[in-house]
Structure formats: structure tokens, C-alpha cells
Amino acid sequence: MDHPNILDIAKRIRHSIIELACVSQGPHVGTALSCADILTTLYFQVMRLDDWESRDIGILSKGHAAMALYATLAEKGIIDKELLKGYCLNDGTLPAHLDRFSAKGVEVSAGSLGHGFNIGLGMAYGFKKRELDRRVFVVIGDGESQEGSIWEGALFAPTMGLDNFTVIVDYNNLQGYGRPNDICSFHPFAEKWQAFGWHTVEVDGHDHVALQRAMNEPTAGKPRAVIAHTTKGKGVPFMEDQLVWHYYIVTEEIRKQSLEALR
């Protein structure tokens, strides 16, 4: 089912991300923008969050995109918007990488890549063993997919019977210092997950309808991998697909330009 306001919600989340990046004068705005639609779809259209005790779990394994998660949690009303004001500041509230003790909805502490994915696998397995009908959704980066731990987990998940587990790869095709496939032999990518025994789907990672369909379709008992093709810096035309916005700072001037250009 399409959410009538989903595009507006995603836009408000992007707006928050730009504000957070500006106030904190911190990096990673591009990576946060690239996964904004994925998180919007997850938190507003896919995950069951009404009964908090039995909620589905969302994990941002690419913890350097924390701004995107904070903005989404605030938009969803899981955390107070006031908390955002202390993002990445001296005597602040929310760190630039995730600390599960910092706020409700931050399920897992993450910042070093290749951790949240495996923790998510363990949670999904734990829910199975406790016979709980809870699902786990983990967002990882394409650069993060170079971590050995990802492929250790990818090998084991099908054997562990984790049909309640979904990994969404935010495939923005730009890691910190270049294109993944220039840095290592990355391609073919989706085929790797398929060969490891995952139900694998490739989608446009900014298409909410396609994302939602991919996250809900049956997987015949397999864990699910959604390869979401995205654009780094998505929504701010001059940031889109530009490597520099992994680290560049959003100045006051850039903030104004970004918010004006935001689409």
C-alpha cells in the first residue's frame, strides 16, 4: 500500500538531515541522504512498530549515517525532536555514530562497519528460537560490504533459517574515497548474495513502492537481500553522486542552498 504522504515524509527527513549536518558541522551528509528513502519506507510502510514490546527491529549498520536514523525516528515520533538539537555537539545528546543507550529506537550501537549486520542476524535467530514473530531489517552500505564479517554472516544466515531477516544494501556506488568497484572487484554484487542462498532483489532505492514490495514479498524460507540502488546526496542536486559530500561540511551558506534546492 502506498502512503499518500510518503514523499513529504522523506523530504522532511532530508530537511532534518541537512539541518543536523549544518549545526554539527560534521561529515556524512551524502551517505545519510542516500538511505533516507530506505529508512522512510522501513519505518513508515514496512516495520511493525505499534506494539513496542513486540516491534520489528531496524538496525543501521552503516552507523555513520546516524543523522538519517535520528531524523527518521524523530519524524516517526519514536524520539523527541528536541533530542536532535543536541546531535554531535559538546554536551550534546546524540553521538555521530550510534549508541544504543542514547535514545529509544537506536537498537544497536554501530559505527564500525560490519557489526550491525551480524548482530541483526543473531537477533533474528533469537526471535526464531523464542518463537516470536518479529522481523529484523538491517541497512548496510556498499562500501561496508567489503568487510569480511558481512560475508561470514551471509554464509551462515541461510543455514540459520532466517526468513525473518532482511538486509538492505544502500548501494550508492560511492564509498569514502571512490567507487566500490574501482577499489575492489565488487561486481557482480547481487549475484553474490544469490549464490550464497539469499532471496535477492534489486530495486531503485529511492522508489518507495518498489522498496516496499521488495521488503514484503515472500522469500520461500530464505533470508532476504534488497540491493537498493541509490544516489549519494540524493535530493540535493549539487550533492548528488559527488564523492566530496562523504566528508564535506554543510556550512550555513550550503545549508540555505541545500534547503532551497531540496527535492
Partner: peptide, 26 residues
Amino acid sequence: PDRFLNLGVAEQNAIGCAAGMALAGF
């Protein structure tokens, strides 16, 4: 059998999974 798992020769994954299982209540 429902309370034991051999996670093979993959130590990063084993510890990560252990943490996840603890978060799930074990």
C-alpha cells in the same frame, strides 16, 4: 538442539550473533 548452535569457523559473525541473541533475550 534448540539451545545450541555451531557457528563454524567465523569468529566475527559468532560474536556479533551472540550479541544479537542477547538483545533478543538470551
